[in-house]
Design a protein around this nucleic acid. Structure first.
Lengths: 201, 201
DNA sequence: GACTATAGCAACCGAACGTTCGGACGCTAA
DNA sequence: TTAGCGTCCGAACGTTCGGTTGCTATAGTC
């Protein structure tokens, strides 16, 4: 009944919390995401927010999950219509760059930030971040191997090495956009990826 | 006189604070670097620590400065004896990889971590991190241009693009070492850099 | 209409945070 | 001897943190 419920009624309270949580955490980090801030932003009490998750760590994991959904939809799902192999690999890179360029997460790539924040702190959050990255890496490598097997990339191509370099380009792009606000880096990243995916002459 | 002064007497208290501060911040982040924690580690009082800097932000800037000294000594100074141009660029890359591989900072590259922590928060710390990165980038680019001018790299080489890709490789290495503890990444990074610096055939 | 489960709020807890303050100590110069 | 200075301590400040407790209001079920 109360008018402040509009967001909750449309999305569900839990979903609204996660949505806002992702936005905050992408700027302030998963540790900088505080329950009080979240509650204030949503016009709720702290216990009202925490009641949906039980603990801050559970909230962080849920936010991480939600961010994973966003990344998957923005990068992976956009590229899925492309044919497996090189075409899809190219589509992934294009969607990846676009995802960073558009600033889908206001604070840059959520997972790179989370990785740097938690790589030195053992725990469930760290494990989840690492697993997410490994899944993404494996997905890319599988697609790269398909391209090699199909003869779309030189037979001597090391798929793991290729993915390593693509990840490097993406991270350098994220860094340049977030720290230096340098839009030129988009071209640089595109060129770096394209020269790796040039395919057979 | 008092026995607990041994560290302070050898290095100076301020220097001891910064040394410990760099170690803590490299793992916990510059915001996670707490005055209380620092004081406890050094067997000092919080006010005794803070008295040397005045505020937490000033402490963070001093720690950042100190970390810059370390990076400069570990990477730049090690490569300086090499001849300007391609030789020095190669020496820089080797020292850079070694710096990451040896874990000079226990939490990985201090500046990459600081960049991700502060890129969304305006302030003196962010400005300092950005300036540090820009100095490093410019230094690399200057060396790359020298190599091109000397004919050690193809004349068509885009120095800015080259540096972008070197930075990407270093960031991917840092990420792989810290999040995945994957020592294989050292070879990957070396290969990525080397294939960029192969020089003229 | 009574019963139960859920969602949310207000108030509160102990701990840790950055910061401030008055003062104690050891040194050096007058 | 005295004055002053830099260094550091201990105590306290107000704030914010994650989390707990007891309550109310609503919705759904019998």
């Amino acid at each position: 009944m109360s008018p402040r419920r509009s967001v909750a009624e449309a999305l569900g309270t839990r979903s609204a919390i996660l949505e806002r949580g992702v936005a905050i955490a992408s700027c302030e980090g998963l540790e900088g995401l505080t329950i009080g801030r979240l509650a204030a932003d949503l016009g709720m009490s702290k216990s009202g927010v925490l009641g949906h998750f039980g603990s801050k760590e559970a909230l962080q994991l849920a936010v991480l999950d939600r961010a994973g959904d966003v990344f998957r939809a923005e990068v992976w799902e956009r590229a899925r219509p492309a044919a497996p192999g090189l075409a899809r690999l190219r589509a992934i890179c294009a969607a990846w760059i676009s995802y960073l360029e558009r600033g889908v997460f206001p604070g840059g790539c959520f997972f790179v930030a989370a990785a740097h924040e938690f790589d030195g702190r053992p725990g469930a959050v760290r494990d989840s971040v690492e697993a997410g990255f490994e899944t993404w890496r494996a997905r890319l490598e599988k697609e790269a191997r398909r391209a090699v097997d199909a003869g779309e990339l030189p037979a001597a191509t090391d798929a793991g090495q290729l993915v390593f370099e693509l990840l490097g380009a993406a991270m350098a792009l994220n860094h340049a956009l977030q720290l230096h606000r340098d839009p030129l880096a988009v071209t640089r990243a595109r060129q770096a990826m394209e020269s790796r995916l040039g395919g057979v002459a």
